[in-house]
Amino acid sequence: MTTERRQADGRVGLPLWIYLPASVGCLLVVLPLVAMGAKVDWGSFVQLVTSESAVAALKLSLRTAVASTVLCVILGVPMAIVFARSNVRGLSVVRSLILLPLVLPPVVGGIALLYTFGRQGLLGEHLEMMGIRIAFSTTAVVLAQTFVALPFLVVSLEGALRTAGQRYEAVAATLGARPTTVLRRVTLPLVLPGLVSGAVLAFARALGEFGATLTFAGSLEGVTRTLPLEIYLQRESDPDAAVALSLVLVVVAIVIVVAVRRRSSGAL
C-alpha cells in the first residue's frame, strides 16, 4: 500500500520522502529558538527584562508597531484592491515598485527614507521650513516600519482577492448595488481572513524591524530605540540581557500571531 492512495476521509496521502525536507525546514526554524531559550539565565530573567530601558523599548515597539499596522491597513487595503481589480495601464510597474521593500535590505530603505524626509531630503527640507521634523523621531520609527511592512499586507490581501474572484461582486452589481456598497458589503467581508493574515504579517514585520529604523530614526532611548535596537546594543555590553529580551520579543510575536490566527480560523 502506498502513502499516495486516497485516504478514507477523501484526502490524498503524501509520499513519505516529503517529510524529510519538511522536518529539516522545521528544525532550521525551531532549533535556533530552542538554543536561544537554553542560553537564557532564568535566575535573573525577570530582572533583565524589567529594566527601565527594556520596558521603555518594549512599550515603544508595541506602540509603533500598532501605529504602523493601522497605516498599513489604511493604505494597503486600497492598494491591494486596485492591484487585484483594476486594469489601468502601467499598474504592473507600480506594483513592482511597491513590492521592492520585500527584497531590498532594510538599511537601503532607511537611507531612502532619510533622503526623502531628512532635513535635507526631498520633502524634509520643505517640512523643516515649516517646523516639522520627522527624521530621528518616533514618527520616523512608524514610517520606517510602515515602509517595510506595507508590502506584506498588500501581497496577502491581493492574493486573497484574486483567489476569491469577482462572481459575487458581479451579482451584487447586477442587483443595483453601487461600487462602494459592493466593496463594503461583499468584497471586504469575503476577503476578511486574508486581510487579518496580512495585518498580522505587517505587525510582526514592524515589530521586528531594525535596519530601516536605525538608519532613519536612530537610537534615542524612549524616542526611537525599539526592542530590536535595545537587543542589538545589549548584545555587546550584556549578552544575557540581549538573550532575555530576544526571548521576550519571540514570545510577544508568537502570542499575537497565534491569537489572531485562531480568531481568523474561527471566522472561517
Rank of each mutant, 00 (worst) to 15 (best):
S237F: 12
V24H: 15
R178H: 12
G25V: 13
Y168Q: 14
R85S: 10
L71D: 00
T224M: 12
S264H: 02
S86I: 01
G118K: 06
L114C: 08
N87M: 13
R167H: 15
T2I: 14
Q120V: 15
S137K: 04
V49M: 04
V107N: 13
A160S: 12
C72Q: 02
L227G: 02
G90I: 07
I134H: 07
I256P: 05
L183I: 13
L150M: 15
Q7Y: 06
N87F: 08
P106R: 13
V200I: 12
A144M: 08
V260K: 13
T139K: 13
Q120I: 15
L99P: 00
F210I: 11
G165R: 05
E125I: 11
Y232K: 04
S156A: 14
L153E: 00
I132V: 14
F216C: 12
A56G: 08
C26A: 15
A35L: 15
G37L: 05
P179R: 09
I134F: 09
V88R: 09
V73G: 10
S68R: 02
A35I: 13
M79L: 15
W17V: 15
A67L: 10
S96E: 11
A177F: 09
L114P: 06
V88G: 03
C72T: 09
A259V: 08
V88C: 03
